[in-house]
């Protein structure tokens, strides 16, 4: 389903120094319906990897295939179709500041052309699941950090994407909500969605007992089927 082939990402230095290596010749495959955790210290390259999968950035070298599609070679006008197959929970939430929680979650369904009925049926449902139904009419600046994160998760799930990319989705959650969200992610995975979870939350990883890819300084140093958080 997702094939990362020899990906290298360099960020050129503006001061003329050597470029920063964010990812160094990274390769791995994710076959359909997997729950994969990507772990590593801050700056190991987790977020860069997710940005490359979302085609937010281009690799310096290598290719990423989504099914048979080389995602960095498709036309810009085709990108929305690809991105609609991916649900992303951004590390910094990236909620629309001028839209309410409800509108934030409904947006992608609207963009995909879902009917009003579907939107009215699904959005309250997902908001209830993430515990934000009573915050539906609030704007992001009226939400707490944890609520924003849950809103971001709801937005990533609402359109039933093929892949969920979750970048540190527990960063601002208390243990109670973290547990709920993990349960939710596992449930989504069990229903047939691939989940790629980038985190440095040791407890979460160890409790999952799923595939773990460990990144260190931009390189894959470990890729285990039932991995644990080891750095």
């Amino acid at each position: 389903m997702l094939s990362i082939n020899n990906i290298t990402k360099l960020y050129p230095s503006r001061t003329g120094n050597a470029p920063t290596i964010a990812l160094d010749n990274v390769s791995f495959k994710i076959n359909g319906k997997e729950f994969v955790s990507i772990v590593g210290k801050s700056g190991a390259g987790k977020t860069t990897l997710l940005k490359l999968i979302l085609a937010e950035e281009k690799p310096s070298k290598g290719q990423i295939f989504f099914d048979d599609l080389n995602i960095h070679e498709i036309k810009r006008s085709q990108l929305p179709k690809l991105r609609q197959r991916i649900g992303t929970v951004f590390q910094d939430y990236k909620l629309f500041p001028s839209k309410t929680t409800y509108e934030n979650v409904a947006y992608i369904m609207e963009a995909m052309g879902a009917s009003e009925q579907e939107i009215k049926r699904d959005v309250p449902q997902i908001l209830e699941i993430v515990g934000l139904l009573n915050r539906a009419d609030n704007f992001p600046n009226e939400l707490s950090g944890g609520e924003k994160q849950r809103a971001a998760i709801a937005r990533a799930l609402i359109h039933r994407p093929d892949i969920i990319l979750a970048d540190e989705p527990f960063g601002n959650l208390d243990p109670y909500h973290t547990f709920d969200i993990i349960k939710l992610l596992i449930k989504i995975y069990e229903l047939g969605t691939t989940v790629i979870l980038a985190t440095h939350d040791k407890e979460v990883i160890n409790s999952l007992g799923k595939r773990v890819i460990t990144l260190d300084s931009g390189k894959v140093i470990r890729d285990e089927e039932r991995g644990r958080f080891i750095l």
């Binding site: 979302l54 006008s77 929305p80 690809l82 990236k94 629309f96 001028s98 992608i108 609207e110 963009a111």
Partner: peptide, 18 residues
């Protein structure tokens, strides 16, 4: 003011015209 919002719209999969 809406620059970041426009970029997010693209990232979540909205078409240019939308």
């Amino acid at each position: 003011n809406s620059g970041e919002e426009i970029s997010i719209m693209r990232l979540v999969g909205a078409s240019n015209w939308f």
